[in-house]
Computed example of a mutant assay.
Amino acid sequence: MTYEGVLTKMQTEMGNPIQYYLVFESSFLNVNQLLGKKIDISFQGYQCLNCGKKKKIFRQGFCYDCFMSSASAGDWIMKPELSTAHLDIEDRDLDYEKSVQLQPHIVYLALSSEVKVGVTRKTQVPTRWIDQGAVQAIPVVEVPNRYLAGITEVALKDHYADKTNWQKMLKGEIPQVDLIKERASLKYLIPKEVLEYYDVEKNDLYDLQFPIAQYPKKVTSLNLDKSPNYSGKLAGIKGQYLIFEDGTVFNIRTFEGYVVKINI
């Protein structure tokens, strides 16, 4: 069976294990059903997720022009503390920025390779943690806008990582940590503007189970620009990665906007 289309990040559904779907324009694929099966992936071209033109992808599925101009690729996406919509100040498109920034956001601790701090919109719980390959996560505070979440993350980054070590995450090398205790210990780190949103008694711990038959001992990233054709047997799915038996891992998120053909 052959599937062809533009890669976008896998859609997920909470379950035991988590269910993964590759969604194309005219078809979709439940990736869990491919575990243990041989998959052929071949690179066909590019298609910008923003303008739809067949231009080389620069970052986040966008061509260079769209990445530099689109409101959905502003600096505040990666650095929430730079958000200004709450001040009525525009970065690239104030209406868009208000729609995203002025909604409830969660600052959280997640256990993926070590304890990391992060920010996500409330509507992206638990999707954000699934995409990071976190086996556990716990909200620290829920705040009404992205800016407050951003300054809280900055305050916590001195004590926690803010990026996942993707190799450790994929190998399953994760320390034993009590996230409830971690959350209880960080009240003194939270900025004054945010303290009113912190409830020491609120401990909503999430456990996440990924579909993995075997963890790789070593991992090698598949790069479609350098290796446009790859074949391998699927051994697991974690975060936004496909994990193959030979230790090759394919980060779907990195190759958003790439047109691929998948044979099963």
Rank of each mutant, 00 (worst) to 15 (best):
R253D: 11
I106H: 05
C66R: 05
S70K: 01
Y230T: 11
L234S: 06
S70Y: 02
D246Q: 04
R128P: 09
V107G: 01
L29F: 08
A213G: 01
E173R: 00
C51E: 13
Y197G: 03
T152C: 14
L29Q: 06
L186V: 13
S185R: 08
D158G: 13
Y230R: 14
E142P: 00
S70F: 03
S99G: 13
T84I: 00
V154F: 08
A134R: 02
V31Y: 02
N165E: 10
G172R: 04
T164P: 02
V107P: 01
K238I: 05
A235M: 11
V6P: 04
V140N: 05
Y96I: 12
D93T: 03
S26R: 12
V143K: 02
I243C: 02
F24L: 13
V23N: 12
M68G: 07
L22C: 05
Q47A: 06
F43K: 11
I106Q: 11
T84F: 01
Y188C: 03
N32R: 01
S112R: 01
Q214E: 15
V219C: 09
F58Y: 15
L94P: 03
G61C: 07
E13F: 00
K217A: 12
E245T: 14
K202S: 14
M10Y: 03
E81Y: 14
N165D: 15
L49F: 08
D93W: 02
Q103M: 11
Q101H: 13
T152G: 12
I174T: 10
K226Q: 15
L29V: 08
K116F: 04
Q124P: 02
I130V: 12
K202D: 15
I180W: 01
Q167G: 10
N50M: 03
V177N: 09
D40Y: 06
K233F: 00
E201A: 12
W166K: 02
G15K: 01
K163F: 02
E90P: 02
A137R: 03
L94D: 12
V249K: 03
G5L: 06
K56F: 00
L170N: 10
M169W: 08
V119R: 02
K181W: 05
K217I: 13
I243K: 01
K122V: 09
V140M: 06
I18A: 03
C63T: 10
I237E: 05
Q103D: 07
N263H: 12
D207H: 10
G36L: 09
N263K: 12
L189F: 06
G45V: 09
L224A: 11
D93Q: 07
T2I: 15
